[in-house]
């Protein structure tokens, strides 16, 4: 079989551990760095950042860390009534990415009903309105098309229970066109395969209940080959490993029920070595600067592999499994 990972060496047999308490503290304090210029330069990512932080905390089983009311108030303050979606920060424009993060946060806290019917309807109209004739989705009214947005649109509508064949069928058709010679997927038809695009395409197909379209004989080996010396995973052939692929690659393999194809112990060690053991947080590679994005995807990867007694995470929605269980599955009896 072709699935055996190769070139993997566990350089050290020392088993380190996940610094759960430090990571909790790191995430908790993210909103207190208001004297740091970078805090202000990242406002356009705040809603996504909040979703990454909250999902990491839930996975660490520290779900009471943030004040729920404050979180919900912040989310609602980012509502953009002109376009009918959520921006990343108050007064920012609606975008499909920040809208999904907002919906995920509300769902995770069991607060979807806090949206009045008028806003909810507007939101569904906004997301559906971003779908183009060829089944793809644009991120906002300015026409950027990417399989990321197809996933984002389907995930969002699925959480809201608003998927219909009129939306799903063309979207599936568009994704099918994005598969490549290596069995993996790119950003648009013709674009190079990339592990993060593989995740969005495979997860979107999972939501659409159309995993039968995946070329598993080609894709699964390609995914397993993302593991490089040192145990980490890269996103494309001949690139450096990066902790975020612990999510993009692993979640895809998990959806395809093929997690056995990589050396999980070696990946676990790689994620551990990317932790900041002093201040908490996880970085892309050892000794680099940490951020909440890599912190989530490191922890989420460990959860998918079943390590460290973490809350099980769902590989399709990147939310706690027990919450995803309450989402109605599309196209299944």
């Amino acid at each position: 079989m072709f699935h055996l990972s190769q070139n993997v060496c566990i350089c050290s047999t020392i088993i380190m551990s996940l610094h759960k308490e430090l990571h909790r503290k790191y995430i908790q304090e993210l909103d207190s760095h208001k004297d740091d210029y970078a805090y202000w330069l990242t406002e356009h990512l705040r809603m996504n950042g909040l979703y990454w932080g909250i999902t990491a905390l839930f996975t660490l089983k520290y779900e009471d860390t943030f004040n729920k009311e404050e979180v919900i108030d912040f989310v609602l303050s980012c509502w953009d009534d002109l376009h009918g979606g959520f921006g990343a920060f108050p007064r920012h424009d609606s975008h499909i990415l920040s809208t999904l993060s907002a919906v995920q946060i509300l769902k995770t806290y069991g607060q979807l009903d806090i949206l009045p019917a008028t806003k909810r309807d507007k939101l569904v109209t906004f997301v559906k309105g971003l779908q183009l004739k060829d089944g793809s989705f644009e991120g906002d009214r300015f026409g950027e098309v990417d399989t990321r947005f197809v996933y984002t649109g389907l995930s969002c509508l699925s959480i809201l229970g608003e998927l219909t064949p009129e939306v799903v069928d063309p979207a599936v058709e568009f994704i099918a066109q994005c598969s490549n010679f290596d069995g993996a997927y790119g950003m648009v038809p013709g674009a190079e395969s990339h592990a993060a695009q593989v995740f969005v395409c495979v997860a979107a197909l999972a939501i659409a209940n159309r995993l039968d379209l995946v070329n598993k004989d080609m894709l699964i080996p390609w995914l397993s080959e993302r593991q490089v010396k040192g145990g980490g995973l890269n996103g494309r052939p001949e690139k450096l490993p990066d902790v975020c692929y612990s999510w993009w690659v692993l979640s895809s393999l998990s959806i395809l029920q093929s997690l056995y194809c990589i050396d999980q112990e070696a990946l676990r060690q790689f994620i551990y070595t990317c932790q900041d053991a002093v201040n908490g947080g996880i970085s892309d590679r050892p000794d680099n600067q940490t951020d909440v994005y890599h912190t989530l995807f490191g922890i989420a990867g460990l959860s998918l592999m079943g390590f460290d007694d973490l809350e099980p995470i769902d590989p399709v929605y990147c939310m706690p499994k027990r919450i995803v269980l309450t989402i109605e599955k599309y196209g299944r009896e």
């Binding site: 892309d284 590679r285 000794d287 680099n288 600067q289 951020d291």
Partner: peptide, 9 residues
């Protein structure tokens, strides 16, 4: 944050 070295000030 990709490829930025961690620094302890």
């Amino acid at each position: 944050m990709h490829g930025v070295k961690r620094e302890q000030l």
